[in-house]
Amino acid sequence: MSSWFVYMIRCTNGNLYTGSTNDVIRRWHQHRQGDGAKYMQRNEPDELVFVEEHPDRSEACKREYQIKQFPKKKKESLIKNRYHSPDITS
């Protein structure tokens, strides 16, 4: 089994988008090209700000849903306390 990831992207307007994938780099590039989530087609992605690894798709989806319910302040706290950015945004 391969790992799955929950991620957050900060858009140029400051909003946060939360998603899950088994390939964060591929998904980032899809978002940058305007492919994939409709939200990301309307809101330009600026920076990958959070990545969290999970053992399988089910766990990642559960966590994605949980994070999506958080108020923005709690998401910002999660970003601040749990993430070190790899340089994949080029």
Rank of each mutant, 00 (worst) to 15 (best):
M1R: 10
P71W: 04
S3W: 01
G36I: 05
D35A: 08
P55M: 12
S20G: 03
N13R: 09
I25V: 13
K80Y: 11
W4T: 00
F50R: 03
M1N: 11
D56N: 15
K68E: 07
R42P: 00
S20R: 05
E52N: 08
N43V: 01
P55Y: 08
K38F: 02
I25Y: 14
N43S: 05
C61R: 14
N22V: 04
G19Q: 01
K74N: 10
V49P: 00
P86E: 10
Q41F: 03
Q30L: 10
T12D: 08
Q30Y: 08
C61K: 14
Y65M: 08
H54R: 11
F5K: 07
A60T: 07
D23K: 09
S90A: 11
H31I: 05
F5C: 07
H31N: 05
G34P: 02
I88T: 05
L78I: 11
K72Y: 06
F70V: 08
I25A: 14
S85H: 12
A37T: 10
S58W: 14
H31G: 02
A37S: 14
A37Y: 04
K38P: 07
Q66V: 09
S58E: 15
R57E: 15
M40G: 03
L16H: 08
R32I: 11
E53C: 09
T12E: 10
I67Y: 04
L48Q: 00
M1P: 06
